[in-house]
Design a protein around this nucleic acid. Structure first.
Lengths: 196, 196
DNA sequence: TTACACCTATCAAGTGATAGGTAGTCTCTC
DNA sequence: GAGAGACTACCTATCACTTGATAGGTGTAA
């Protein structure tokens, strides 16, 4: 999978109900977090009744876990493998920066993981775990990328991965809070890799 | 005001009702955001009835704006002036990093501004504005600090301020999401200033 | 006939907000 | 200095509404 496709795992308009529910829930979480959407909101978006949403996902925790599991899976599937000979670390990192902006900043949103993290105190353990799992996947992959990019120890690469994630997430907070999308590039620019 | 006191604007235990309400609301927002607390929660915390909270702050928007206005005011009052001769930029920046950790990370919370930013889609305009105002105060001050610290153009210092804020906020997201407080220092370490 | 995917109807709990009452205190006037 | 009025800071009670969740019915397809 090419680096440009990392964030472009779009869904087709016509899908089964379960997927439509997950799509609606994912969009709702991105927009307002865990507490800001209801089963009725999701139901209306999908075109069914709220009881039918409960049929597919009995509780809200079930629903949100399912969203995070799918999100993590799709995210992971879209990432190029840093352990292949033709892996281009610089291009991949730049593509990641662009992808993050395209998915979050340009849609005037924060990432689904930042939103759920903010709501962590009201999440059940299963949901918290699915969130932590996603961050682990992301951190592990970025650690490999930075190891390819800069060499050094595992710990050093891990720290760089954390700093990188923090920068992008923090940048999207800044954009949201100030309403000035330009902040994203100002923050991300220090992480952009020059072309060979 | 010394750099060490930037984040230590603590309230005394006995205060008037209005302040108690603001204290309770601030703590509640930090814990769960805009949607995760009710007038009844605040009332119980303060020891009055919910109608009495409405007496002091008619609507939820009024209450949250008051919280942010007080927070911004106290924050601003606690910042040392970067335009004095004896201003120590290095020490101030390190103290800021420590203060941010003490107030947020060590309490297993994210900052009140990150929380409200995540809820931005459900905030009324006045609340959004009070949030944006706070970020402006913070960015302006940090811009001055970085100008003292590194020199360069206004724009360069502004970018550095944004990168710095993003790093700290992103770090606290990472800490919350993973449950590993160590991430804060790993991210913040790259911003720490060596002693003279 | 059985499983599936929906539905209607309803529940108890919690929400922000309002109306209107009450005790205490302050201030002005005679 | 006593009484009247107004103001303050609470209260009880209630409103309309939304929430997550459940029970139980309906149609359809294998």
């Amino acid at each position: 999978m090419s680096a440009e496709n990392m964030f472009s795992h779009k869904r087709l308009p016509s899908m089964d109900t379960k997927s439509k529910i997950l799509n609606a829930a994912e969009a709702a979480i991105v927009k307002g977090g865990y507490g800001a959407f209801s089963f009725r909101d999701i139901a209306e978006e999908v075109g069914i009744k709220s009881a039918s949403v409960h049929y597919h996902y009995p509780t809200k925790a079930d629903l949100v876990v399912a969203v995070m599991v799918r999100f993590t899976h799709d995210f992971q599937a879209a990432l190029p493998d840093p352990n292949t000979p033709d892996f281009d670390a610089k291009r991949t990192l730049n593509a990641f920066i662009d992808g993050f902006r395209a998915q979050n900043v340009e849609h005037h949103n924060m990432s689904i993981c930042t939103m759920l993290t903010a709501d962590k105190h009201q999440l059940s353990d299963v949901v918290s775990q699915s969130l932590a799992d996603f961050y682990q996947v992301k951190l592990d992959w970025l650690t490999s990328v930075f190891k390819r990019l800069e060499g050094g120890t595992e710990t050093a690469a891990q720290n760089r991965a954390g700093q990188f994630i923090a920068a992008l997430h923090g940048a999207s907070v800044l954009v949201q809070a100030t309403g000035e999308p330009a902040w994203y590039e100002k923050v991300a620019s220090s992480w952009r890799q020059p072309a060979d």
